[in-house]
Design a protein around this nucleic acid. Structure first.
Lengths: 151, 151
DNA sequence: AGCAATACCAACTTGAATAGTGGGATATGA
DNA sequence: TCATATCCCACTATTCAAGTTGGTATTGCT
């Protein structure tokens, strides 16, 4: 029950782009370096984010990537869904209606459980925007400074 | 972001054992047949559940498996943790304290997100006991009967 | 006593997914 | 025109999931 690196790296990359929002395109190598990730691998992920519209790209020299919308309008759930597929702890709850996958899905008690898990994860991830992450990053950093002053 | 069959089948098996709670040992082939699962594969899973104490076994003819505690004292989270390992969407939030996995975990914003996801999943899974599942199964079945009467 | 039913155990297999790497084509600002 | 970028596709290595197979040990029943 882990998110793969696809989703996790993707969120990190989007966070970096959010930090540079409004400052022109940011080249991939800076994002990769900033987060300590493989640039070639990250390229695949950002490519999918671009196709989904969550990021835009500018080709050529001085090019790079930008957010497709403002940080307040992109949730972590948006990013995860593009890179990891539908948020669902089991295939039978990818959506609410198609019960095809299991002949007795209608009477299945475990399915109710996976639905609740799914909704709970979705609720968390839909509730956090990139803008929220920027705020939290500031709070973390402030705390860090304070504890540095203490010692 | 899926639970594997290990956890999902394990919960199903535990549910069947809960349905037979107080009625003596239930052999594995009946559990497997009831849920439409491979007996040989399920054996591995139940073996781990036994080692963890969640189920007890009786060897020999007329033997089988029983719950180790009453259905009200076993949560879905207990079962999942035995079969899937710690509930955590990323390695860096397996527990709260060891930050070893990531040198900047203390200032990592994404880590806060994975913690919230983890806590939210844990809250759901810890909040559902096998006894709760029995109740829900009855409710599902009642609804099923009603809709059968309607048509 | 002996048989059938059952748990127990460990090794093996198959396929898919993860987490990348590598090489080249295309676009573009300076 | 050149360095800096995105873009795109094919390849690989490792790990994990999801079983299967075959055998041993135990025990109730007749």
């Amino acid at each position: 029950m882990r998110f793969s690196t696809r989703g996790r790296y993707g969120v990190k990359a989007m966070f970096v782009l959010a930090q540079h929002y409004g400052q022109g395109p940011l080249p991939l190598n800076q994002i990769a370096e900033d987060q300590g990730l493989s640039e070639a691998y990250l390229e695949q992920l950002v490519g999918e984010l671009r196709k989904s519209g969550l990021v835009k790209s500018v080709r050529g020299a001085q090019g790079g990537y930008l957010l497709g919308k403002s940080p307040g309008k992109i949730t972590v759930g948006d990013v995860i869904r593009v890179l990891e597929g539908p948020i669902a702890p089991a295939d039978c709850v990818i959506d609410d209606d198609t019960l095809d996958l299991c002949d007795q899905a209608g009477q299945c008690v475990t399915r109710l459980i996976w639905k609740r898990v799914r909704d709970s994860i979705t609720h968390v991830l839909e509730g956090i925007t990139l803008a929220d992450m920027l705020v939290e990053a500031n709070e973390l950093h402030d705390g860090e400074q304070q504890s540095q002053l203490k010692f």
